[in-house]
Design a protein around this nucleic acid. Sequence first.
DNA 1: TCTTATTTCATACTTTAGCATGAGTGGCAC
DNA 2: GTGCCACTCATGCTAAAGTATGAAATAAGA
Lengths: 141, 141
Amino acid sequence: MTRTVLTYGLLLGATLVALKMIEYSYFSFRLSLDIYLGIIAIAFLGIGIYAGLKFRKKAIPPSDTVEAKIDEEIIKELGLSKREMEVLQQIAEGHSNQEIADRLFVSLNTIKTHINNIYTKLDVKRRTQAVSKAKSLKIIQ
Amino acid sequence: MTRTVLTYGLLLGATLVALKMIEYSYFSFRLSLDIYLGIIAIAFLGIGIYAGLKFRKKAIPPSDTVEAKIDEEIIKELGLSKREMEVLQQIAEGHSNQEIADRLFVSLNTIKTHINNIYTKLDVKRRTQAVSKAKSLKIIQ
DNA sequence: TCTTATTTCATACTTTAGCATGAGTGGCAC
DNA sequence: GTGCCACTCATGCTAAAGTATGAAATAAGA
């Protein structure tokens, strides 16, 4: 933080000095007003771009902390129901069919039915494939 | 693309018009040079910041295309061998034990042994749990 | 060289997952 | 009401996964 303040302070100081020097040149050597303005414009454009880049860097957090957004569109396209999505989520978390049944308060057979429907809709044959595909399709995290 | 060109073209045109207006004001109403320069500076600073942000947006790829780096440290801590990591990767890709055996040119029993060793080291009981844990530990993608 | 870790493979077994099929119920739209 | 869909549950079966145990070859390290 201290380093950042110092850097920006020095930069600002240098800019002011440069401006004063240009101003001095303008009045002593009768530099054209257009050129003077051009230098000012380019200088501040540069500062602005630099500031913009810096700002962006901090505004965008590191990639691995950002969770991909769930693609509701694809879920609809595949025709996956709410319950199926719940089951799919449970599978991704590593639960067994019996555990999922207990968590969702339904029977093991019901879960098996849901899972097989999920496999059909996702066009896969195993739960690990389902998780792999669902993650790549961004329908689960 | 066409829209972008039009937007920037209009923006540039508006800026030029604004500058000319300020220039006119300067000469007709005897606006202070300092104020004139200030307006120019602020305007270009704004343009610069805007350009910087725009540039960043395109320079930094979307977060979900950036792959998290594998944490070799944790792999060593858990004592996972090369072969075990290969098998773990195959599991994460959704392959069955038989498919993994075929791909790595070993027997099904060998894969089962590897997998059970992986479960012990990862302290899990199922392949889906192994994948879930391995991903959260960043030892696979 | 002796030890250790890795990799390989086997047998025998239990458990879980997956497949096919049928069926009952409640909600919603036409 | 009637049909459709989501959700539920069941039976019977096959396939795959997982457990336990033992063993052998090899490569790396003390």
